[in-house]
Design a protein around this nucleic acid. Structure first.
Lengths: 152, 152
DNA sequence: AGCCGACGGTTTGAATTTGAACAACTCGTA
DNA sequence: TACGAGTTGTTCAAATTCAAACCGTCGGCT
């Protein structure tokens, strides 16, 4: 066991800033979506992915990976969305085990209506607070951070 | 209602990077603590704050604010820590309503033992992945982001 | 002293998250 | 063709989170 490399002041600032910012930004975005569109952020992201799917439908597993969520968590959220008629499930033609999720017309509408407010919240909470340089550095750095860590 | 200012590519990269990085880093740190010290990250942060308290004890509300958590969430977590004998509650001498939380000797020990592994995980997941410039920019920028948003 | 709005912390119930267990199925290989 | 390891999505119970309701107390004001 080697000596612990404690965080110096600059590192501590970055870590605490990261913690505080992430918690607050997530909470802010979550609230805005729930308030204005009655969607959780997780649900919103599901709608986005489905809407962006090349064939209009995605396998559950691919969806879970793309959203950095667990399989069981996704099953739950898609279940909620299906209850509300925003998403439909159908079986995968090439793999009997597979399940494809796709947006219903109501799902498309819900996303279209929720998107502007959500983007505004993202700007308000994060994007518009940063200048050009910060935006670039943050994008580059955090992308690298995320890519290094396992999905689950 | 003015026209929606959608995110351009650079902004979208920053936002997606932020989402992915935050989710994964939080999960990574959470797992490491649970695995190696049987503590949730929330519980670890409580121990840290208590350990850093000038008088060795803090009011629940101050603790909640310092940790960007909700009052009820804190009540639950402190309850868990108390069950395990890491934290003690006593009433505030100057305010009957108030409750002070403080570390027990076991709490001090648990923190001392958990800290090195936690710091290592934080480095592994975030700090050591960034260079000097990124560290500085990230610290400055995210601190500003966090400060702008309401606690709750 | 007495009132009243605000505060401090807990309780409550519902919603969500998690990992593990599970059953059904796929696919490469013997 | 038959095997077995790995995959797919769901289910389950337990843990956690959240907001709202709640109760007792504080403190300024009359």
């Amino acid at each position: 066991m080697t000596e612990t490399r404690w965080l110096n002041e600059r590192e501590m600032t970055a870590w605490l800033g990261f913690l505080q910012a992430t918690i607050k930004v997530h909470r802010y975005v979550e609230h805005q979506l729930k308030e204005d569109s009655d969607l959780s952020h997780a649900q919103y992201e599901v709608l986005v992915k489905l809407s962006a799917a090349p064939e209009g439908a995605i396998r559950m597993t691919d969806l879970a990976n793309g959203l950095f969520t667990t399989k069981s968590g996704l099953t739950y959220q898609v279940g909620q969305l299906e209850k509300r008629g925003l998403v439909r499930r159908r079986s995968c033609p090439t793999d009997v085990r597979g399940v494809l999720a796709e947006l219903t017309p109501e799902g498309h509408r819900a996303l279209r209506e929720a998107a502007p407010g959500h983007v505004e919240a993202v700007r308000e909470a994060l994007i518009d607070v940063l200048d050009e340089e910060e935006l670039a550095v943050l994008g580059r750095a955090l992308e690298r951070v995320g890519a290094r860590l396992p999905v689950e």
